[in-house]
Design a protein around this nucleic acid. Structure first.
Lengths: 218, 218
DNA sequence: TGTACATCAGTGAACGCGCGTTCACTGATGTAC
DNA sequence: TGTACATCAGTGAACGCGCGTTCACTGATGTAC
């Protein structure tokens, strides 16, 4: 029942690569694999044969499989943060107002989702959450801190907005902040399940519409 | 790194149970395990020792591990449908109007989520989606059909509502229907990650607020 | 500029354990006549 | 009411394969003097 598709061979042989490259390649392959079949079903063997090193080479880079999990999540959280930071900063530069900056940022975000070539790759947060017991406490805490950081950051932004535009509806701003995360995680899941990549960007745009109504009225 | 907590021993020994009971017990244990650590990390050994039969006994009930996956998802989808059917039917009986019936139903739904004793158990849809490659096409299709059925059913309901209450915002009704699924899946994920079970019901209530604004204005 | 040593990025062989699966068999209950 | 057979819900032993992990070793590059 396990339908393991063979991974592509690496273009560059192991010898002519530097160590950091090999490590990153391992993480790239692991990310792809974890997102499509989960962490437990991702074997070290498949990663090393995709990257072109031996098993002992893997254990040079990661002390055990758990270290791979941790490095993978950390890299994901870092990248996500950088990406969204740039995106919302760019949106803010186009617009002085915190509300309109956010609205433009959400539009950028939805466009980015739409432009991704294949169906959306998915998010490690959900993938890890549903395999929680496999990981040690540090990994779970890393994941939790990641989500809570977004709550805090969106919340700060919403506070600024609410100062200038008193909300027309009775909504809790923490809930409104969490809704971004929930809708992204859920949107990715539903996109994957129904195999329609438009679902995720459309949900983001719908959230944007609700946000506008909350602060600007209908 | 695998932190496998021992499952509770069954109260009733295998001999004094009927066959259907044992099968259901296996499914119960499997559901719990799959939700907390994923399908691949759930071993047949742990299920049989929790239920109190031998490994061959397991293969009497399921021809292989894939059959367990299929039965598990099918049971989950059936239960979910029955539960939500009853819930929204009960809400409709209290209110003639399709909008207010829906609003009351969402309130019931949120209350149900709140009243669950422990943190929310999670949803097999997301758990399966992030382990897609492990399953055969029938399982993926089952999952997909499940989500699409909810899109259709909520959409029908929203059509009825929109007939009576022309929407005040420019929203696509399919998106609005999908948002329920996305928010539930995402809400469960976020609830689990941050370990706050209130997140899910609060997201449902926030959706409810937006729905009210869409059809009734602010 | 040459030599000595350290570090980096791996190799290769072996390990034992747990996994899913198979197969021949069995004791208790149900049904037909 | 008794006997024959069928079905249900398992048992017990064995299978081989793949998994994560360890350990002693190595060839290429970097650095100190």
């Amino acid at each position: 029942m396990l339908e393991t598709r063979p991974q592509a061979q690496p273009e560059v042989p192991a010898q002519s690569r530097r160590g950091g490259d090999t490590r990153d390649l391992l993480l790239d392959c692991a990310e792809k694999a974890v997102l499509s079949k989960g962490f437990a079903a991702t074997s070290i063997d498949e990663l090393i044969s995709a990257v072109g090193i031996t098993k002992s080479g893997f254990f040079y880079h990661f002390k055990d499989k758990g270290a791979l999990a941790e490095a993978l999540l950390q890299r994901h959280l870092d990248r996500e943060e950088t990406l969204l930071d740039e995106l919302f900063q760019r949106a803010d530069e186009l617009n002085e107002d915190p509300l309109h900056g956010f609205l433009v940022g959400l539009k950028f975000f939805a466009e980015m989702m739409t432009d991704l070539p294949e169906a959306h790759p998915g998010c490690l947060v959900a993938a890890y959450t549903y395999q929680d017991q496999l990981f040690n406490k540090e990994v779970s805490d890393l994941n939790r801190a990641g989500v809570l950081r977004w709550r805090r950051r969106f919340r700060e932004r919403l506070d600024l907005i609410a100062e200038r535009y008193p909300p027309r509806m009775d909504v809790d701003l923490d809930d409104l902040a969490d809704m971004v995360s929930a809708l992204v995680e859920g949107g990715i899941t539903i996109s994957k399940v129904v195999r329609e990549k438009e679902v995720l960007p459309r949900q983001v745009l719908l959230y944007r519409e609700f946000l506008r109504a909350t602060f600007l009225g209908i």
